[in-house]
Each structure stands twice: as C-alpha cells, then as structure tokens.
Design a protein around this nucleic acid. Structure first.
Lengths: 218, 218
DNA sequence: GATGTAATTCTTGTATACAAAAAGGTTGAC
DNA sequence: GTCAACCTTTTTGTATACAAGAATTACATC
C-alpha cells in the first residue's frame, strides 16, 4: 500500500513512543534517527512532521521536535471526547445499523465472553476493539468512523492498561450487552448514553490510570 | 510565531484551494509551485504533506498529491459530525459555562442581531463564528475545542454559502437565542439538541448547497 | 488503423550540501 | 567564584543532486 520509507519510519517512530523507548519530552534527533534507520534525514523529517500533526510530537521552530505524551488533564479531555464520539456513533447506529451488523456485534460479544472466561486480557482487548469498530462503522458516516478510529488508536496505549484493572473486563462485558440491547431496540438515546458511560468510565477511573502511568509519562 | 516558509506555503496553498485557483482533482506540481513561490521543492513538499493530513489533498504514492474537495456525501457526513461535535460542546457547556461567558454569548448575539438588521451577511458570519467559538471554549475541554475549531475551519467555505440563503440569517438568529436560553437554564440535553439542529440544518438544506457548489467541486 | 511494447521524459522520493539560527563551551572581567 | 561576551559546535531548515518508478511517446507488429 504505502511504499514510502517515510511512512514506515513514521509507524516505527510511533511504536518507539508507545513502547517508551522514546520518552516523553525527549528530542527526536534527526541525524541519530536517520542513522538508526539507515536512511537520510529527509524521510525522517517527513515522518516527524506526520507525527506532529497527529499530536504525538510537538515541534518548536528551529529547536526540533519533542515527544509529547498527554498529561493527566489532556488525557481526561481526550477520553471525554472519545466517550462523546462513541455516544454519537451509538446514536446514529441505533437508527442505521443493519441486521447483519447486529449479528456481527453479537458474535464479537460472544468472543469477548470467551476471552473473559479464559481470562485472556489480550484476546479480550482485541475482540473488544472489534466490537467498537463495528459500531463506528454502523453509524453510517465514514468521516465520523475515520475520526473515531483515529482517536481510538491514539488512546490505545492508555486504554489497554485499564483492562487489567480488577473486575473491569467483567463490567465492560455487561456494558457491551446493554449497548447491543439498545441498538436492537433502535433506542438511539440509550445507545448513546450507555456507550458514553462505557467509555467515560475509563476517564473517571483516572486515579488508577495515573498511578499506572507515573513512570511512563507526565 | 512560525518562521518556517513551509508553513507559510501551506497556508497559501490552502488559500489557493479555497479560492478555487487550485481546482478539485488538480495535481499539485511541486516544481511549478516551488518556482511560483520562489523556493525549492523541499518546503513545498512539507506544505503538501501538511495539507494531506488535514484532508485537503490526497497523496498517491509515486504519483503525487491531488486537491480533494469533499463530494456531496462526504460533505453531508462532515456536517453531521460537526453537528454532533457542537451538540457535545453544548452538552458540556451547559454544565460548565461561566457567568462571564454567558454574558459574552449575549453580547455576541446582540452583535449578530445588529448585523442582521443591517443586512450585513459578512459581518453576521463573523459574529456568528465568534458565538460558536465561545461555546466551544465553554465546554471546558481544550482537546474538544481544538477539534471543533479544526472542523469548523474546514467547513468554513461551505458554511458561508449557506448564510446567503433566503431567511437563513433570521432563522439562525432565533436558534442562537434558543441555545443561550438552554445554557442559562443549564439544560444540557436541550442545549445539545438545539445546537445539533442548528448545525445539522445546514447539511439538510443540501440541495441548495449542492447547486451553489456545482461549478466549484464534485 | 489499432494495439502492444520499448525507449524517453517527467516526477516523485531520497540523499547530500549549504545557510542560518540555537546550544554549548571558553575566556576574560569583576 | 560568578557572570557575560564571544567563539565554536550542533542542529534545523532549505537548496540541490541523484535514483527509481510512472507517464508518455515512438515504433513495430498484427
């Protein structure tokens, strides 16, 4: 799909930030990265600029680009926004979702339950992700879907931590069922509200999140 | 603030797209643009990539970047999303807005009315914009505010056309009053609903929009 | 005349070179 | 010892050079 090495480097840099190999506030040394990837500065610069627009790094004119992990406040704000976007997806999906998609949602939920039974958090995360992506798509608005995916992706590293909190998986599962029920009944208000709460809870459990992150960012 | 010529070029290219000097589907010839701006290809490329992430141009590997004006479907989708974002801002603002901000909203509305009385659509547009920006800010979520501003800006050229439709200014004004009333009463649901309708109406009057745009894009 | 293929030209993507600004270090005055 | 001015080094931002893929044209074949 994308043959540009600049894009590959962008993805790789993203990974380095997520894994913490590039720490918050750290400057992205173009030359160092270029030699690391075995390329010239040009594609590295392009990659950095791409990351800058997605908010992962901040650029200061004539000073360079610095890794920017969201602080507590920004993170809460992002989760709040995510909750609202998901609520919107639910609201629209309640009116527009197809029978096929509903069946798929059910299937995804079953798989979630299976992962839960097996205590496989990673697998649960994967199926959970699929569940939400289905809802994004079912909103019937590709622009919205794209934005939802973008933010979802950005919050991924923080969301993932959440699932390992005690009892969260079980609770999340129950909420999924509520959501599907609202969608089946085409109750857009309830679909929106349950989805909003389902996501917002992650922001509210922020004390836990904070402590899990202390060594990583802030 | 930003001394990078690449950023200046980015803004300039944006202008060229908005004014229609660069038409939809047209390829952005790096060399031609470089000579036009009197610089080398490097900053032009950076500018183009920035526009690509904002959606104004689409890049095809090894083929170049092409101006991408949203078509009817995409435009409807964007307006629908904008409506939902504004609804969210209203929902949150209803709970969080300060007395000062409410006073400012009132002032903005008065100025809107004044422009309406004078039949000054451009002035009305400016004050209207200020009104909405105030609501974005009053949601008390800077991330959300930023996203709202971004999309608002992207839709600017299409929204503007709307206001010149017969009777739209007057109707818009009435809706503004409804919105402020809901905010004063801290009625988050009504604030959200009125704001959503206020914006969504622009998407619904799409037949008008289409015809106004026919020569420009699609 | 139409179609498929090879050579040529153009354009993108990457590497390197250069200019200017910022960071860092050194020397000197107090 | 501290601070400041000056010089050196480093690093960003831009220009130019080069490599490789895409588009175009010319040509041959049917």
């Amino acid at each position: 799909m994308n043959i540009r090495t600049a894009d590959k480097i962008s993805k790789e840099l993203e990974r380095l930030v997520f894994t913490g190999e590039l720490q918050n506030g750290e400057r992205l040394d173009e030359i160092k990265l270029a030699t690391l990837f075995g390329v010239s500065r040009t594609p590295v610069r392009e990659a950095i600029q791409k990351l800058a627009t997605s908010g992962l790094v901040r650029q200061e004119p004539r000073r360079g680009a610095f890794v920017h992990q969201p602080g507590p406040v920004e993170l809460i704000e992002m989760f709040e926004f995510m909750a609202e976007i998901e609520a919107t997806c639910g609201r629209l999906a309640a009116k527009r979702i197809s029978e096929d998609a509903l069946a798929e949602l059910d299937l995804a939920n079953e798989k979630c339950q299976l992962s839960l039974d097996q205590g496989d958090a990673d697998q649960y995360y994967l199926e959970n992700e699929h569940f939400h992506h289905l809802i994004y798509k079912s909103a019937g608005n590709e622009f919205l879907e794209h934005e939802a995916l973008k933010l979802h992706r950005r919050l991924k590293p923080f969301r993932r931590i959440q699932l390992h909190l005690r009892g969260r998986m079980k609770q999340s599962m129950d909420e999924h069922r509520e959501i599907v029920k609202a969608l089946i009944e085409a109750d857009s208000t309830r679909a929106a509200d349950t989805l909003r709460d389902h996501v917002a809870i992650q922001g509210e459990k922020f004390n836990h999140l904070m402590t899990s992150l202390k060594d990583k960012s802030i």
